[in-house]
Design a protein around this nucleic acid. Structure first.
Lengths: 326, 326
DNA sequence: ATGAAAGCGCTAACAC
DNA sequence: GTGTTAGCGCTTTCAT
């Protein structure tokens, strides 16, 4: 592993000149710079980022933490962050808390050390912990809102209100809500949205859960849900809805004739769920990109931290239909 | 951010004693250690890993690179690595090359700087590049075999041979193979396995592709495949097979009556594909865990680098059936 | 325009 | 058992 000293020796200059040539900032004669660059390339010199970080305080990385990388909802978010980071020649480190808040804290600490800032997606940590983390390393939240911290979140309250309005319009009077992780901020917003709407719509809302936001969980809870006299089911996310949907069908339930099913996130591709899953889709730009941009702003000390609430829209597909005659 | 100096001052000892107390290795009186630890906790001191790494040469991280985090095949692999790493109190950094070899090289370099070793999953980089990387940072390959480098891989050649034998046994005489990424090592093994088997079985093998290993790609290529007179389709992976399956059904094809479909990896959960997808399932322990263990061995200078080839088994489900009468 | 030198936070000899 | 000190590889004043 070539170091800056090797390059300096080989090029016949001081290490300071090598550093300057590489970083471009300061005044170095064009001739020297070219020579240094050539030597660096010849030696296949890669500056040690840890050493650099030690002095500059900048590592050139952004850390991203998600509860579950396998969840398709998070893929586009991570991709959006990566895109923004790449444009600034920064690397992205991804950590997966596997929905475990204890693990999450450790991972965030670690991430914070190797990264200049972190994007915490759907964090399950307590407000106070998050606020404390933010004092140590620049932090942007996604799908989580905590007083004082910058965030990008879907307006799940509005989304669920609209969704239930749609479902009620189809004549459903008893609806089950399959709740997600206890510590999920968006889960609370979703439930609140549903409860608010249910009151006004004359809908009886049965809340079940918490469940883990996965396809498998959806399948596992299907039997139990079918024992209620609900004619429609709304789930915390598309994965749970999808699992429930397939399992219910296997149990002989017709969707949407016997039961209407809806999810949240619009995370499934066409044809995965059949019939297509009615869901709530976040509008506009990628949450990941927005969050990353906020983070870059924080790092530059440029922008004011803000909470961006993204509107969302109900997408009606085949999994919802008129309530059965009863 | 408290440093080791703050702790030393506060505890009334030298920084060396703080370091020793924290790392546990050397002899420190129990009394001092406790006092130092208490102060450290009080100050919420977190040792700077970059600084430590600069002197020890160890960062306490392992880097993992996958072509696509969203691909369900890679989830369990990453989970296996994480488990082994966690047991050694090491962190895992995950990078996603998005199937782009150019991006991959940059990411690997970066990973290599922040990690003590890397696990490269299904790398698309040339042999020579991989060998060179391995000289710089300890490297273990997953689903890729390169002379001289440690690896864990599925015996895709055998798997595909067995799968085609199964399919031929059902009477299929013309089979399409939907190939994966050009640079995929396992893709070459799969094709070779199929071609070898086809000759002996009297099966005509039509190769199509390369395609990206995704559900969407499978859907997109369905129409084209249906124009061939093949009665069975074998895909590079389950995702392609699944996409093809759903799209073909939408186009009015009955599976398996009109067309048999099979994948590879056994990556789908029950009920996702309907009928269940016949596939090839890797046997035994997690490839991720095995790879991580090899990496730990390398780091300790303990084990000999080895190439572990994992056997796999055909899992017959509803998506394959007897060839149509013609 | 370039070099010398002082650290960034930490560990690992080496003294005592 | 504990302190002193020399760096790890790099950036960044401050001189020149």
């Amino acid at each position: 592993m070539a170091t800056i000293h090797d390059v300096a020796r080989e090029a016949g200059v001081s290490i300071a000149t090598v550093s300057r040539s590489l970083n471009g900032q300061a005044r170095v004669s064009e001739t020297t710079r070219q020579r240094v660059l050539a030597v660096a390339r010849a030696l296949d010199f890669i500056p040690n980022r840890a050493a650099r970080g030690l002095v500059t305080g900048r590592l050139g990385n952004v850390g991203v933490l998600v509860p579950d990388v396998a969840n398709p909802f998070f893929g586009p978010i991570v991709a959006g962050i990566e895109e923004v980071a790449q444009a600034r020649d920064m690397g992205v480190f991804l950590a997966d808390s596997r929905e475990d808040p204890d693990a999450e804290l450790g991972l965030v600490r670690r991430l914070g050390q190797q990264a200049d800032g972190v994007v915490l997606v759907a964090s399950r940590l307590p407000d106070a912990t998050l606020q404390e983390i933010a004092t140590r390393t620049p932090t942007v939240l996604v799908n989580r809102v905590v007083p004082g911290l910058p965030a990008v979140a879907v307006d799940a309250h509005q989304g669920m209100r609209d969704l239930l309005t749609e479902v009620a319009g189809l004549g459903h009077r008893t609806v089950v809500y399959l709740d997600g992780p206890v510590r999920s901020w968006s889960g609370r917003a979703k439930r609140a949205g549903l409860e608010d709407a249910a009151a006004g719509l004359g809908v009886e809302l049965l809340v079940r859960g918490p469940y883990s936001p996965s396809y498998g969980a959806g399948r596992a809870l299907a039997a139990e849900v079918l024992e209620t006299d609900a004619t429609a089911v709304v789930a915390f996310d598309d994965l749970i809805a999808w699992g429930l949907l397939t399992r219910a069908q296997e149990l002989g339930v017709r969707v949407p004739q016997d039961l209407s099913v809806a999810g949240f996130d619009d995370a499934l591709e066409e044809g995965m769920a059949r019939p297509g899953l009615t869901t709530v889709s976040p509008q506009g730009a990628s949450m990941g990109a927005l969050a990353a941009q906020q983070l870059m702003g924080l790092l530059d000390g440029a922008t004011e931290p803000a909470v961006e609430m993204l509107a969302c829209e109900v997408v009606v597909r085949g999994s919802t239909g008129p309530a059965p005659a009863a």
